[in-house]
């Protein structure tokens, strides 16, 4: 009887080991698959040509991705510029100042915001943000813009990453021992001075990690950006120009990519670049966060 049960236990263990390993290896398969698929275009064009040339014409076999890389950098950078201060201030307020009822309702609020699908953000962007940029912001600077622009994409992205950054930042603030606050306050510092001089300094690595995680999400975000960024394959010169980030490039061209040689390979290379950069972002923020946990423990 016991024999049967322990045999079953061992068999289940082997099966589960196999399944677990298979899941853990998905990431390796993906890297290998993307690498193999992007090999042909790397053989035809040198990496420097792909990264630093902006002549994108698949029909002529030219796959310079500079315009798309520039679009990605613009959109991610500008959304970081918007999201960073707003989420930091919100997180400080929620963790240090807010009354407890506000703290309680803000949590489900953030969860809902984080759960909204990116296409819905895109719909909102088209209906609200794009007209806002076209009719208010661009005329204010005396420029014409269709509204489908880097700025619109950045605003939408910033709203998408708010909950990610805010929630992690709040957790970082909570991990700071209360004694630090008490010590600073008892020395006569005001609450804001305590935050500015004690808490922010202590929380800095965690805040950086929270932001890095948020931006790795913004970096790979496809649908919302695709819907509002304008998608013109040229290097943008201002936030009111249209941009064409890498994820949008992949999403927009799947229909025609099979009929043109090397096209699918170039798109897989774009996917590989996204994959590698996101993994780097991830490693960095994981490293920072685990160091804080170690210190807190």
């Amino acid at each position: 009887m016991a024999g049967k049960r322990s045999i079953r236990d061992a068999r289940a263990g082997r099966l589960m080991f196999f399944m677990t390993s298979a899941c853990a290896l998905i990431v390796v398969f993906m890297a290998a698959g993307l690498l193999i698929k992007s090999f042909p275009v790397l053989r035809a064009n040198s990496p420097a040509q792909i990264l630093f040339s902006d002549s994108w014409s698949p029909l002529k076999g030219e796959f310079g991705m500079l315009a798309f890389i520039a679009g990605t950098v613009w959109v991610t950078g500008l959304s970081a510029l918007i999201a960073m201060p707003v989420s930091l201030f919100s997180a400080i307020y929620l963790s240090e100042y807010a009354p407890s009822w506000l703290r309680k309702i803000s949590r489900p609020f953030m969860d809902v915001l984080a759960g909204i699908p990116s296409v819905v953000f895109g719909v909102w962007g088209i209906l609200i943000i794009v007209p806002l940029v076209r009719d208010c912001i661009a005329p204010f600077f005396g420029v014409y813009s269709s509204g489908y622009s880097i700025l619109a994409a950045s605003i939408v992205l910033a709203v998408m990453v708010f909950p990610i950054i805010i929630q992690i930042t709040i957790e970082v603030f909570h991990s700071i021992p209360g004694e630090l606050r008490d010590a600073s306050l008892s020395l006569g510092a005001t609450k804001w001075q305590t935050i500015k001089l004690v808490l922010l300094r202590k929380a800095l690595p965690g805040i950086i990690a929270a932001n890095v995680l948020g931006f790795s999400r913004a970096f790979g975000e496809t649908m919302a950006v695709l819907m509002v960024a304008g998608n013109i394959p040229a290097i943008p010169h201002s936030p009111l120009d249209a941009g064409y980030p890498l994820p949008a490039l992949i999403a927009n061209n799947y229909g025609e990519m099979l009929s043109i040689p090397l096209y699918d390979s170039a798109l897989m290379l774009a996917a590989l670049v996204l994959f590698l950069i996101v993994i780097m972002f991830n490693l960095l923020s994981r490293y920072i966060l685990s160091r804080i946990n170690l210190r807190a423990a």
């Binding site: 990431v27 970096f219 975000e221 897989m268 996204l274």
Partner: peptide, 15 residues
């Protein structure tokens, strides 16, 4: 490995 996968953009899964 799960953390890596979690962060990878969905367009990469699609591709």
């Amino acid at each position: 490995s799960m953390d890596f996968l979690w962060g990878i953009p969905s367009i990469v899964y699609g591709a």
